[in-house]
Design a protein around this nucleic acid. Structure first.
Lengths: 137, 137
DNA sequence: CATAATGTACTAATGATAATAATACACTAT
DNA sequence: ATAGTGTATTATTATCATTAGTACATTATG
């Protein structure tokens, strides 16, 4: 896998958040395992043709959320999931985001079972990717 | 019900989006029924101590998403749900938002069944509010 | 018809933030 | 030592949220 991060410059969401989310999803899907090394700040910035500061910003957020650990001089690595703590604030934020989705789904005319089915379907895709084993780098 | 819209000025999300989401959730929960009138642009702006333009912006978005219909000179009213169309783009956006939540939940260390249970729980709250009948204005 | 209330449109100014740019520092591997 | 790493700092530009003020068109009400 050469470089799986793909940014959309003209998107409504900032580039640094796109990086954060894509790395987060890759971890959730098991495509990135504990100890795996993220591309160097300058290298990723070069390949994405963006500023190194933008990548550094994304890595800082990933580090603060506990998904990666950074060792200056060495690199940025996927952290141990066992050490990722979930507090009340995290759960509340998750609940709020769920409410937003549910509200949107209902107002689109979707039935409850449709929304749940859709949600289960999306989640299963994550689990399947996990069980399918890691992709080779 | 005097005024159920509550904004948080210092929030990371824009005021006009807060209004959009809160009106959307109220509709999804059945607290706003078809034909109900939203507060006038200037009136709501006055009560929230924000600029009328900000409220107008929120109403414009709600109108574009099909949740309300506006009649200049008369007011802004909750639209007929039967007329709200859902296209592929809407569904895709919903799926993307679901992926974001699932990713976040998994990376917090939550199990699949926990995430699904939490999601069902949130959705049931919407349905219950609906079945509980409309609140009186 | 007159008046008030409604949503809408427009321009301008301000503040916050995303992103770039350039540089420098501290730590680690070789 | 040298190169590669993350981090920090300052400055600049562009975009956007928000406010401000004004004006217009339509509708309800008397």
């Amino acid at each position: 896998m050469a470089l799986w991060i793909q940014i959309t410059p003209g998107s409504d969401e900032p580039i640094y958040l796109q990086i954060v989310e894509q790395v987060g999803e890759a971890i959730a899907k098991g495509q990135l395992a504990v100890g795996d090394k993220l591309p160097a700040v300058r290298k990723l910035a070069s390949e994405l043709v963006i500023n190194p500061n933008t990548v550094a910003r994304a890595y800082t957020i990933l580090e603060q959320s506990g998904l990666v650990t950074t060792k200056t001089g060495s690199g940025t690595f996927i952290a141990d999931p066992a050490l990722r703590g979930k507090d009340a604030a995290d759960i509340n934020m998750l609940a709020d985001r769920m409410d937003g989705i549910i509200s949107r789904g209902l107002n689109l005319g979707l039935e409850s079972q449709d929304i749940i089915a859709m949600f289960k379907d999306r989640l299963e895709k994550f689990i399947k990717t996990r069980q399918g084993g890691r992709q080779k780098k």
